[in-house]
Design a protein around this nucleic acid. Structure first.
Lengths: 192, 192
DNA sequence: CATCGGACTTAATATAGGTTAAGCCAGGAG
DNA sequence: CTCCTGGCTTAACCTATATTAAGTCCGATG
């Protein structure tokens, strides 16, 4: 198993050798080809993915057929449709590989069991969820208070490595503008 | 102590008598007059509030002096600047009482200690944080894909009791439009 | 009781960003 | 090698929402 999963967890909590062995058995390595789906709207999201290489993105398609990116998940990120995963209801999100992607997969029953057996894991996920709340709050504030160009600048600052491997239209969709406007915006010369 | 705190927690996890007594001692009842602040931008958010009556709201003020509401917290809701609370850094949010408000207060060190002593509490907050993530994701998707009138309809559906006690300008700020546009929008006749 | 400020409304005007449409270019599939 | 698809650009035009500015109403305050 890739070392990065434990690195991810150790950033927040301590795991004993025994707990690591236990946890390792819960996860199963999987992979996805580019443009293939980990989840489609309407399916139930049966587990949680930890990306070890490649990039996933989650998005919705609105009533007019337009996509809206909710999240990118490069290596070291977790990805799921949290609504569908926690409630075991049909997903509202699509999760798709933007690149060939490898990930570790844990099913919901296994995750629940792991929380019982490894309290430190529950703490890890509490902290991750709290951090996610903070990040989404920031994004909402940004969407409400900043023009597109500033949201783009904030995105560049926050995810400097992602800008280089994402096509523009994905970034446009994440910050909430059309590809056409995005193109105009970044080509409208802040000259030097 | 109000019974609603334990109701809130019991909705997710089981607490023994002993744990309830222990927990009860961590919380301290406090109150705020209308228009008074629980937290102002720049201060460090030293604890977490559980509202027992009244309404709190958290908001930012942007560089042009406009307010943007992040969250309302009526009775049975938790409220903090999560960024400031978890990192003990200066807050970016204001938290203000929209009505005379009573709440139970737990400081950050006490909360951390309570997590150590009561693992079920940690689970409760993991689940709360997950639910918050889901709610914020929905809000982001809505902001990206729906016009203001539909965001308002969604707000009415999700918080039917709040509509009746909030001034319009607060709702306008939450869904992300100016009070002027909000007024025009709801008075532009969907007649019957 | 008078006044003051704050919430709401209305309306004229302004603008960020969307829509439509067309063309260009590069890379993957055959 | 060629073709086609998808990503990017440009440009003309359009619309949802913002801005500015008055004016009304009402509840709080001196």
């Amino acid at each position: 198993m890739e070392v990065t999963l434990f690195e991810n967890i150790r950033r927040q909590v301590f795991l004993t050798e025994d707990q690591q062995v236990l946890l390792e058995n819960y996860f199963q390595p999987k992979s996805l080809k580019k443009k293939h789906y980990l989840l489609q709207e309407g399916e139930v999201n049966l587990g949680l993915a930890f990306v070890t290489s490649g990039i996933l993105r989650s998005f919705t398609i609105d009533s007019n057929g337009f996509e809206h990116v909710l999240q990118f998940a490069p290596a070291d990120w977790w990805m799921a449709d949290m609504y569908s995963l926690t409630r075991q209801e049909p997903a509202r999100l699509f999760i798709e590989a933007l690149e060939p992607t490898e990930y570790l997969w844990i099913t919901k029953p296994q995750l629940d069991e792991a929380f019982e057996q490894i309290p430190a894991l529950e703490r890890h996920f509490r902290i991750l969820a709290e951090n996610a709340v903070i990040a989404y709050q920031n994004r909402i504030i940004g969407n409400l208070s900043q023009p597109a160009i500033e949201r783009y600048a904030a995105f560049c600052q926050q995810y400097p490595t992602l800008i280089q491997c994402l096509p523009q239209k994905q970034i446009a969709s994440f910050i909430g503008v059309t590809p056409e406007f995005f193109s105009k915006m970044i080509n409208t010369i802040p000259m030097h």
